[in-house]
Amino acid sequence: MNFRAYRTAFAVHARQVSRYRGAAIGGMVTQAFFGVMLVALYSALAGEGELLRQTATYVWLQQIFFRAFFTTGGEINEQIMSGSVCYSLLRPIDLHFWCVCREMAAKIVGVSMRILPMFLIQFILPENWRMLPPNSLVGFIQFFLSLLIGFCVIAQVNMITAAVTMRTLDNKGFSGLINLVMMILSGNIIPLTLAPERLQAILRWQPFAQMLDAPIRMYLHTASLGEWALSFGVQLAWLVGLTLFSRALWGHNIRRIELQGG
């Protein structure tokens, strides 16, 4: 397989995303506001201490990497509605993988643009409300690797919602529902670490926790080799499962596409 086409798709889309500075600033203001609100609330509840610092760190990491949840999947559906999808289909490429490359480009570039400013914003807050530094260098490396897989997991879920939208041609209905469930179960609305122990035992292993929750846990606590292997393995397992599922959906959909007119 020749990877050049996919590398180009990645690079071109990365450059496109990097143009949207205005959107990035708007997004960061919103994320910062929500971050402050949540941390203010948790500080009222948790008081000062280790729990607050860890929860604040969780909230800020969620806000910093929030952009990764966004999808460019709307594009393929616009193509389908306008009919220009036939050009994409004519290209000698794997359309699914090509779109994944674009998703990943948007995520990596979009997030990179926001990391530094967001980090500085939270740094002007009182000390209790700030992020903690990573637990250790090993923990940070674990976090980073896990985060990359997390992005891939999000991309696959994005591809699944795109596949659903292809069927229904309605991006607010069922796909919107999947996105909302993603927000709730990924720890964006409330840190999953605050759930009761019994519930966490379930929450930790569901697919949406593999996105940002699993990496953030490694940032907060350096995992032992066994823990790390388990968490990493679960992430990879979900990634493989979701990839197979979304590829199956795409394959099925693309066989059924009917092009009209000429």
Partner: peptide
């Protein structure tokens, strides 16, 4: 679509 979106709001 209407019911799906209503459900989404609820969720």
């Amino acid at each position: 679509s209407f019911w799906m979106q209503t459900l989404a709001q609820l969720v």
